[in-house]
Design a protein around this nucleic acid. Structure first.
Lengths: 355, 355
DNA sequence: GAACGGGTTACAAACGTTTGCAGATTTCTC
DNA sequence: GAGAAATCTGCAAACGTTTGTAACCCGTTC
């Protein structure tokens, strides 16, 4: 039955039609109570100016009194506007269920704020890309949302492009690529990687490593930037593909440091989370930071300043990013055109590098 | 291919009426293409056994081919079932917009997983309690969701009770209170507080403090438990109301430690986040942990094991909690009855205490 | 005094599904 | 081979709104 209604309220006397306890569940019910037509009630509650101000207020008062709220499904069906934005997190290459990177959750939090402020509801979906575009079109094609926000593109850029060719209101967070059809808001990841590596080199690091799995294009670009910086300085940078999944990261990091031949003195990480884990493993093994090893994170999560020593990191403007994403999706829904936005990251020097 | 029986379709030009590019947007459209009635298409796509297996598959194939998906709004309106669970985060006493405690986001992540698995969509709402029950009834009364999950009760227990009297499918995360009408899943916070304080005392701490703002009932219960443990040992515990908001926490902590007369050697914190911040401030001021000061966190976030030293903390079973919440909301939707569940916390001894 | 027009309201047709019921077949049963 | 049972399909009525259009009421205007 309808959510949570049981008709238990039979105890009341239903005889008195205008009594305070008639069940008013629909516009028609309220219309009867108010002595007007359903259409008028609809307009009154919507605050339209077509109805006499006095009756409008009378009807609104009645609605409050009876605790009546228009059924959203009916409203949305009829008006062909849902007021809902779908936010989908492609689980991509990370097979694990749980969303492990706090970065995405933080972005989600900001998106929730911005959307609420803009008067939209937020429908959250995890999605597991399956080779087809079905995981996305299930959302876009359902008539359930006015637009879609993608938190990360994973490795699905082509598929997203394909969907966008017939579904316009879609904005993704991630790395912008030349020739991409869909609109992306994100950080200049290559620049970020470069900043990180340059900083390490400037701080005296020579045996460099990049920690992160490059299945996602964002990470791949960060590696590319770091590598470019290294090469410009005549150095080599070792790529160590650390996975983000909780269970894998620790052992992988330990293995990375255990190998007797490796002796990194400067590490660029693909995320603050990896950096924090690395910090932990290094502490355990007794290495001094930044004395023996220097580390740079990526994201500048609120937590980055709380590590010990506080984490040097590449900052992504995530609050700003959420704001821009919402601004763009709204414009697209209105039928306007928009282009991608790539935001420059900044290096925040704290104490895991010798400034 | 071979839709076969379709020479009718007088609407468009008759020549290629069965071509692949007729717009099929509704059940009726697809029905025309398939040469059956809309009702049959509906049943076929729903996989009902009433339709012949062969036609069912033919129709499903056509649906795939034309990329047709039934409009959810219409479906939900008609079937009076939305397949959506509302997850609302009452912002409560924390005036700040951004959801600051990673605990809630983590719980949200787990809920997303569980709900997806159970075939539900998740509609996320921030809500700012306003003295009335409107913030909640806006969600429950809209016909938009089949049930509501509350992430934290804030200080709204009475209002929630009031809503539950006419809207049954609602489950909250938080502290259970005697006589409460609504169903709660949560940790035994008083026990948690007690475990933390007892552990500190057993580790030799004598000058105790509790860090946390007790506006939320969960925190208040943790304080009560800690205080009980202290009193049982003949000790006093000082309550320092640290707020969770990003901007306030740092300064408040510094102030807490700066006062010359205070010299805590054992701190129970209301959350891992506060503990991590405190750790940071203590490091800054040169104090040794656990040598000079011992600290116990609360939550056991994944990050707790990454601090240095790794954080001793009181573990809440948050994944398990999410699972239980979803199980209960499903049962309630089915019309069954359920009761609250309070889960015992466990103390995870790491290295911010001298075990 | 009829035509007019602004301001309100009622009417009824969508919106795109799902589903009870009744036909229309086909298959069994004896 | 007739009647009953079983299987499948079509019809049409909801679900509860929104919104274009027509109708009505009054006070003006010519």
């Amino acid at each position: 039955m309808a959510a949570g209604m049981d008709e238990s309220s039979g105890g009341h006397n239903g005889t008195d039609a205008s009594g305070p306890d008639v069940e008013v569940r629909t516009l028609a019910d309220l219309a009867r109570v108010a002595g007007v037509s359903a259409g008028t009630v609809s307009r009154a509650l919507a605050g339209k100016s077509l109805v006499n101000a006095e009756t409008r207020e009378r009807i609104q008062a009645l609605a409050r009194q009876y605790g009546f709220r228009p059924n959203q499904m009916a409203s949305k069906l009829r008006s062909r506007r849902t007021g809902v934005i779908g936010v989908v997190i492609p689980l991509g290459h990370e097979k694990r269920q749980q969303i492990s990177d706090p970065f995405f959750l933080t972005l989600l939090g900001h998106l929730a704020d911005q959307l609420t402020e803009a008067g939209y509801d937020l429908m959250l979906s995890r999605a597991i890309p399956d080779g087809t575009s079905d995981w996305l079109e299930r959302i876009t094609g359902s008539g359930m949302v006015d637009g879609v926000l993608l938190i990360g593109q994973s490795d699905q850029s082509e598929i997203i492009d394909q969907v966008v060719s017939h579904y316009r209101p879609l904005v993704a967070w991630g790395n912008h690529r030349e020739g991409q059809k869909h609109i992306v808001v994100g950080t200049d990841n290559e620049l970020g990687g470069r900043l990180a590596a340059e900083h390490l080199i400037a701080c005296g690091a020579r045996r460099l490593a990049f920690f992160g799995d490059t299945a996602g294009i964002e990470i791949a670009m960060r590696l590319r930037g770091a590598r470019a910086a290294a090469e410009a300085a005549g150095l080599h940078i070792t790529h160590v593909p650390i996975k983000l999944a909780d269970t894998e990261m620790g052992p992988q990091l330990e293995a990375a440091f255990a190998a007797p031949e490796v002796d990194y003195d400067g590490i660029v990480t693909a995320s603050d989370l990896i950096a924090m884990s690395a910090l932990h493993v290094l502490h355990e093994s007794g290495r001094k930071i930044p004395g023996d090893v220097q580390i740079v994170g990526f994201d500048d999560l609120p937590l980055a300043r709380l590590t010990s020593p506080p984490l040097t990191t590449v900052r992504q403007e995530i609050g700003q990013g959420a704001k821009v994403m919402v601004e763009k999706i709204r414009a697209l829904i209105e039928g306007e055109t928009r282009i991608s936005k790539v935001m420059p990251p900044t290096l925040i020097a704290r104490d895991t590098t010798r400034s």
